[in-house]
Protein backbone atom coordinates (compact mmCIF):
# COMPACT_ATOMS: atom_id res chain seq x y z
CA UNK A 1 0.00 0.00 0.00
CA UNK A 2 2.77 2.36 -0.99
CA UNK A 3 2.51 5.82 -2.50
CA UNK A 4 3.87 5.45 -6.03
CA UNK A 5 5.63 8.45 -7.55
CA UNK A 6 6.92 8.85 -11.08
CA UNK A 7 10.34 10.56 -11.25
CA UNK A 8 10.92 12.03 -14.69
CA UNK A 9 14.38 12.57 -16.09
CA UNK A 10 15.69 14.40 -19.11
CA UNK A 11 19.01 13.42 -20.69
CA UNK A 12 19.49 10.99 -17.79
CA UNK A 13 19.28 13.76 -15.18
CA UNK A 14 16.34 14.08 -12.82
CA UNK A 15 14.20 17.13 -13.25
CA UNK A 16 13.90 19.37 -10.21
CA UNK A 17 10.17 18.61 -10.27
CA UNK A 18 11.01 14.93 -9.76
CA UNK A 19 12.63 15.66 -6.40
CA UNK A 20 9.61 17.74 -5.53
CA UNK A 21 7.37 14.82 -6.58
CA UNK A 22 9.20 12.42 -4.30
CA UNK A 23 9.04 15.01 -1.48
CA UNK A 24 5.29 15.26 -2.13
CA UNK A 25 4.91 11.49 -1.99
CA UNK A 26 6.90 11.37 1.25
CA UNK A 27 4.66 14.00 2.90
CA UNK A 28 1.60 12.05 1.80
CA UNK A 29 3.10 8.73 2.93
CA UNK A 30 3.82 10.16 6.39
CA UNK A 31 0.18 11.23 6.70
CA UNK A 32 -1.06 7.87 5.47
CA UNK A 33 1.48 5.85 7.48
CA UNK A 34 2.98 4.14 4.47
CA UNK A 35 6.08 4.04 2.28
CA UNK A 36 7.18 5.69 -0.97
CA UNK A 37 7.91 3.76 -4.16
CA UNK A 38 9.57 5.84 -6.87
CA UNK A 39 9.42 4.68 -10.48
CA UNK A 40 11.97 6.02 -12.91
CA UNK A 41 13.80 5.34 -16.14
CA UNK A 42 16.54 2.74 -16.10
CA UNK A 43 18.64 5.33 -17.96
CA UNK A 44 18.59 7.76 -15.03
CA UNK A 45 22.17 8.51 -14.02
CA UNK A 46 21.68 8.13 -10.28
CA UNK A 47 18.35 6.54 -9.27
CA UNK A 48 19.54 6.25 -5.66
CA UNK A 49 19.45 10.07 -5.43
CA UNK A 50 15.69 9.76 -4.98
CA UNK A 51 16.26 8.24 -1.52
CA UNK A 52 17.43 11.66 -0.31
CA UNK A 53 13.87 12.95 -0.70
CA UNK A 54 12.13 9.97 0.86
CA UNK A 55 11.97 7.08 -1.63
CA UNK A 56 11.97 3.77 0.23
CA UNK A 57 11.94 1.67 -2.91
CA UNK A 58 13.23 2.81 -6.29
CA UNK A 59 12.03 0.83 -9.29
CA UNK A 60 13.79 1.36 -12.61
CA UNK A 61 12.00 0.43 -15.82
CA UNK A 62 12.69 0.77 -19.53
CA UNK A 63 10.41 3.72 -20.18
CA UNK A 64 8.04 3.76 -23.10
CA UNK A 65 8.62 6.60 -25.57
CA UNK A 66 5.30 8.39 -25.20
CA UNK A 67 3.28 9.56 -22.18
CA UNK A 68 0.54 7.06 -23.00
CA UNK A 69 3.02 4.18 -23.00
CA UNK A 70 4.39 5.36 -19.64
CA UNK A 71 0.84 5.67 -18.28
CA UNK A 72 0.26 2.02 -19.17
CA UNK A 73 3.46 1.01 -17.38
CA UNK A 74 2.45 2.92 -14.25
CA UNK A 75 -1.11 1.56 -14.43
CA UNK A 76 0.32 -1.95 -14.33
CA UNK A 77 1.85 -1.10 -10.92
CA UNK A 78 -1.23 0.63 -9.53
CA UNK A 79 -2.86 -2.40 -7.98
CA UNK A 80 -2.49 -2.25 -4.23
CA UNK A 81 -1.05 1.27 -4.26
CA UNK A 82 -2.27 3.78 -1.68
CA UNK A 83 -1.91 6.70 -4.06
CA UNK A 84 0.04 8.04 -7.03
CA UNK A 85 1.97 11.27 -7.55
CA UNK A 86 2.98 12.78 -10.90
CA UNK A 87 4.66 16.17 -11.26
CA UNK A 88 2.64 18.54 -13.45
CA UNK A 89 5.39 18.90 -16.04
CA UNK A 90 4.37 18.86 -19.69
CA UNK A 91 4.92 15.10 -19.86
CA UNK A 92 3.29 14.56 -16.46
CA UNK A 93 0.20 16.44 -17.55
CA UNK A 94 -0.22 13.94 -20.39
CA UNK A 95 0.57 10.89 -18.26
CA UNK A 96 -1.62 11.56 -15.22
CA UNK A 97 -5.08 11.69 -16.87
CA UNK A 98 -4.30 8.66 -19.05
CA UNK A 99 -3.14 6.81 -15.94
CA UNK A 100 -6.32 7.78 -14.09
CA UNK A 101 -8.44 6.54 -16.99
CA UNK A 102 -6.52 3.25 -17.24
CA UNK A 103 -6.21 2.51 -13.51
CA UNK A 104 -9.53 3.83 -12.25
CA UNK A 105 -7.98 6.80 -10.52
CA UNK A 106 -9.54 9.78 -8.77
CA UNK A 107 -7.25 12.52 -10.04
CA UNK A 108 -6.59 16.08 -8.97
CA UNK A 109 -4.47 18.11 -11.38
CA UNK A 110 -3.17 21.66 -10.99
CA UNK A 111 -2.79 20.74 -7.31
CA UNK A 112 -1.00 23.21 -5.05
CA UNK A 113 -1.02 21.47 -1.65
CA UNK A 114 -0.05 18.21 -0.07
CA UNK A 115 -3.10 16.26 1.17
CA UNK A 116 -4.93 18.16 3.91
CA UNK A 117 -6.82 14.98 4.81
CA UNK A 118 -6.48 11.31 3.98
CA UNK A 119 -9.99 9.87 4.52
CA UNK A 120 -10.88 10.75 1.84
CA UNK A 121 -7.71 12.21 0.36
CA UNK A 122 -8.31 15.95 0.13
CA UNK A 123 -6.14 18.47 -1.69
CA UNK A 124 -6.25 22.10 -2.80
CA UNK A 125 -5.97 23.08 -6.45
CA UNK A 126 -6.13 26.16 -8.64
CA UNK A 127 -9.26 26.77 -10.70
CA UNK A 128 -10.87 29.50 -12.81
CA UNK A 129 -7.50 30.63 -14.13
CA UNK A 130 -6.21 31.58 -10.66
CA UNK A 131 -9.49 33.34 -9.78
CA UNK A 132 -10.60 30.45 -7.57
CA UNK A 133 -9.08 27.97 -5.14
CA UNK A 134 -10.79 24.60 -4.98
CA UNK A 135 -10.70 22.01 -2.23
CA UNK A 136 -11.34 18.61 -3.77
CA UNK A 137 -11.91 15.12 -2.35
CA UNK A 138 -10.56 12.15 -4.29
CA UNK A 139 -13.37 9.77 -3.53
CA UNK A 140 -14.10 7.48 -6.46
CA UNK A 141 -10.96 5.47 -7.10
CA UNK A 142 -7.24 5.25 -6.42
CA UNK A 143 -6.28 8.77 -5.31
CA UNK A 144 -3.86 10.43 -7.74
CA UNK A 145 -2.29 13.85 -7.60
CA UNK A 146 -0.58 15.89 -10.29
CA UNK A 147 0.87 19.00 -8.65
CA UNK A 148 2.06 22.31 -10.05
CA UNK A 149 5.87 22.32 -10.11
CA UNK A 150 7.41 24.67 -7.54
CA UNK A 151 4.18 24.75 -5.50
CA UNK A 152 4.97 22.43 -2.57
CA UNK A 153 8.76 22.52 -2.54
CA UNK A 154 11.57 20.03 -2.16
CA UNK A 155 12.36 18.51 1.23
CA UNK A 156 15.20 16.20 2.14
CA UNK A 157 14.02 13.26 4.25
CA UNK A 158 15.91 10.04 3.78
CA UNK A 159 14.13 6.90 2.63
CA UNK A 160 15.44 3.33 2.59
CA UNK A 161 16.23 3.74 -1.10
CA UNK A 162 16.53 0.13 -2.25
CA UNK A 163 16.98 0.15 -6.04
CA UNK A 164 15.54 -2.69 -8.12
CA UNK A 165 14.67 -3.10 -11.77
CA UNK A 166 11.37 -4.31 -13.17
CA UNK A 167 10.27 -5.44 -16.61
CA UNK A 168 7.16 -3.74 -17.86
CA UNK A 169 6.07 -2.60 -21.28
CA UNK A 170 3.69 0.01 -22.58
CA UNK A 171 2.34 0.35 -26.09
CA UNK A 172 3.29 3.58 -27.82
CA UNK A 173 0.59 4.54 -30.30
CA UNK A 174 2.73 7.29 -31.78
CA UNK A 175 6.28 7.40 -33.02
CA UNK A 176 8.47 10.19 -31.68
CA UNK A 177 10.22 11.66 -34.70
CA UNK A 178 11.85 14.69 -33.12
CA UNK A 179 12.46 16.16 -29.70
CA UNK A 180 14.09 19.54 -29.30
CA UNK A 181 14.81 21.34 -26.07
CA UNK A 182 16.58 24.68 -26.02
CA UNK A 183 19.86 24.03 -24.29
CA UNK A 184 21.56 26.34 -21.84
CA UNK A 185 18.29 27.99 -20.91
CA UNK A 186 16.19 27.60 -17.80
CA UNK A 187 12.92 25.84 -18.69
CA UNK A 188 10.09 28.27 -18.08
CA UNK A 189 7.61 26.02 -16.23
CA UNK A 190 10.26 24.96 -13.69
CA UNK A 191 11.98 28.29 -13.22
CA UNK A 192 12.23 29.77 -9.73
CA UNK A 193 12.72 33.24 -11.18
CA UNK A 194 11.15 34.51 -14.40
CA UNK A 195 12.03 37.75 -16.16
CA UNK A 196 9.27 38.70 -18.55
CA UNK A 197 8.89 41.62 -20.91
CA UNK A 198 6.20 43.14 -23.08
CA UNK A 199 5.54 45.72 -25.73
CA UNK A 200 7.12 48.37 -23.52
CA UNK A 201 10.45 47.07 -24.83
CA UNK A 202 9.56 48.58 -28.24
CA UNK A 203 11.29 45.93 -30.35
CA UNK A 204 12.96 42.51 -30.35
CA UNK A 205 16.41 44.11 -30.60
CA UNK A 206 16.01 45.40 -27.04
CA UNK A 207 15.80 41.99 -25.38
CA UNK A 208 19.53 41.76 -24.65
CA UNK A 209 19.07 43.52 -21.31
CA UNK A 210 16.21 41.15 -20.41
CA UNK A 211 18.40 38.15 -21.24
CA UNK A 212 21.18 39.70 -19.19
CA UNK A 213 18.97 40.24 -16.15
CA UNK A 214 17.72 36.67 -16.50
CA UNK A 215 21.25 35.37 -16.73
CA UNK A 216 22.32 37.25 -13.57
CA UNK A 217 19.33 35.84 -11.69
CA UNK A 218 19.50 32.33 -13.16
CA UNK A 219 16.01 33.05 -14.46
CA UNK A 220 13.95 31.94 -17.42
CA UNK A 221 12.84 34.57 -19.91
CA UNK A 222 9.21 35.04 -20.84
CA UNK A 223 7.02 37.49 -22.70
CA UNK A 224 3.49 38.78 -23.02
CA UNK A 225 1.03 37.59 -25.65
CA UNK A 226 1.23 40.61 -27.98
CA UNK A 227 5.00 40.20 -28.12
CA UNK A 228 4.74 36.56 -29.19
CA UNK A 229 1.87 37.37 -31.58
CA UNK A 230 3.96 39.92 -33.46
CA UNK A 231 6.89 37.51 -33.50
CA UNK A 232 9.36 39.44 -31.36
CA UNK A 233 9.74 36.36 -29.18
CA UNK A 234 8.85 32.67 -29.72
CA UNK A 235 5.42 31.33 -28.71
CA UNK A 236 7.14 29.08 -26.20
CA UNK A 237 7.95 32.16 -24.10
CA UNK A 238 4.37 33.42 -23.98
CA UNK A 239 3.03 33.24 -20.44
CA UNK A 240 -0.61 33.78 -19.66
CA UNK A 241 -3.89 32.17 -20.54
CA UNK A 242 -3.45 30.13 -23.76
CA UNK A 243 0.30 30.34 -23.15
CA UNK A 244 2.35 28.86 -20.35
CA UNK A 245 1.27 29.13 -16.74
CA UNK A 246 4.05 29.78 -14.29
CA UNK A 247 4.37 30.07 -10.52
CA UNK A 248 7.94 31.05 -9.77
CA UNK A 249 9.16 32.47 -6.47
CA UNK A 250 9.83 35.72 -8.28
CA UNK A 251 8.21 37.09 -11.43
CA UNK A 252 9.62 40.33 -12.81
CA UNK A 253 7.39 41.96 -15.42
CA UNK A 254 8.93 44.68 -17.51
CA UNK A 255 6.84 46.83 -19.82
CA UNK A 256 3.78 44.59 -19.52
CA UNK A 257 0.48 46.32 -18.79
CA UNK A 258 -1.07 43.28 -17.10
CA UNK A 259 -4.13 42.29 -19.14
CA UNK A 260 -6.35 39.77 -17.38
CA UNK A 261 -5.22 37.05 -19.82
CA UNK A 262 -1.63 37.63 -18.75
CA UNK A 263 -2.46 37.69 -15.04
CA UNK A 264 -4.25 34.33 -15.41
CA UNK A 265 -0.89 32.76 -16.19
CA UNK A 266 1.29 34.48 -13.60
CA UNK A 267 -0.74 35.46 -10.57
CA UNK A 268 0.23 32.28 -8.72
CA UNK A 269 3.79 33.62 -8.57
CA UNK A 270 4.90 34.13 -4.99
CA UNK A 271 6.39 37.59 -5.47
CA UNK A 272 5.64 39.86 -8.42
CA UNK A 273 7.69 42.91 -9.41
CA UNK A 274 6.36 45.28 -12.04
CA UNK A 275 8.34 47.88 -13.92
CA UNK A 276 6.20 50.13 -16.07
CA UNK A 277 6.19 53.76 -17.19
CA UNK A 278 2.44 53.94 -16.66
CA UNK A 279 1.56 54.20 -12.96
CA UNK A 280 -2.02 53.26 -13.90
CA UNK A 281 -1.02 49.95 -15.53
CA UNK A 282 -3.36 47.26 -14.15
CA UNK A 283 -0.41 45.01 -13.39
CA UNK A 284 0.51 47.19 -10.39
CA UNK A 285 -2.69 45.97 -8.70
CA UNK A 286 -1.40 42.40 -8.85
CA UNK A 287 2.17 43.28 -7.91
CA UNK A 288 4.02 43.13 -4.61
CA UNK A 289 6.67 45.65 -5.62
CA UNK A 290 6.68 48.20 -8.37
CA UNK A 291 8.88 50.75 -9.99
CA UNK A 292 7.20 53.41 -12.09
CA UNK A 293 9.87 54.12 -14.62
CA UNK A 294 11.33 53.55 -18.04
CA UNK A 295 12.54 50.02 -18.65
CA UNK A 296 15.51 51.35 -20.62
CA UNK A 297 16.74 53.14 -17.49
CA UNK A 298 15.56 50.75 -14.79
CA UNK A 299 16.62 47.40 -16.25
CA UNK A 300 20.33 48.21 -16.75
CA UNK A 301 20.41 49.60 -13.18
CA UNK A 302 18.67 46.47 -11.94
CA UNK A 303 21.18 44.26 -13.77
CA UNK A 304 24.02 46.06 -11.99
CA UNK A 305 22.30 46.01 -8.60
CA UNK A 306 21.48 42.31 -8.88
CA UNK A 307 24.97 41.50 -10.07
CA UNK A 308 26.44 43.34 -7.07
CA UNK A 309 24.00 41.55 -4.75
CA UNK A 310 24.85 38.12 -6.19
CA UNK A 311 28.59 38.88 -5.95
CA UNK A 312 28.18 39.78 -2.28
CA UNK A 313 26.47 36.53 -1.36
Amino acid sequence: MSIIVFAEEWNNQFKKASFEAVSYAKSWAELAGTTVTAVTSRGAADPAALATYGADRIVTIVLAATPYGIAQQLAAMAEGAAGMVIAGTSIGRSIAPALAALAGGALSTNTTSIPTGTAPVTVVRGAFSSKGIETIELTGGLPMVSFVPNSVGIQERAGAGAVESMDTTGTDLLQVTEKTIASGKVALPEAEVVVSAGRGLKGPENWAMIEELASVLGAATACSKPVSDIGWRPHSEHVGQTGIQVNPNLYIAIGISGAIQHLAGVSASKTIVVVNTDAEAPFFKAADYGIVGDAFEVVPQLVNAMRAFKAGQ
Partner: peptide, 12 residues
Amino acid sequence: GEIDGGHATYTG
Protein backbone atom coordinates in the same frame (compact mmCIF):
# COMPACT_ATOMS: atom_id res chain seq x y z
CA GLY B 1 3.28 19.32 -28.99
CA GLU B 2 4.99 21.70 -26.61
CA ILE B 3 7.11 20.06 -23.94
CA ASP B 4 8.93 21.89 -21.15
CA GLY B 5 11.49 24.11 -22.85
CA GLY B 6 10.91 22.72 -26.35
CA HIS B 7 8.83 20.64 -28.73
CA ALA B 8 8.20 16.99 -29.54
CA THR B 9 6.95 15.81 -32.92
CA TYR B 10 4.99 12.60 -33.30
CA THR B 11 3.65 10.62 -36.23
CA GLY B 12 0.89 8.07 -36.21
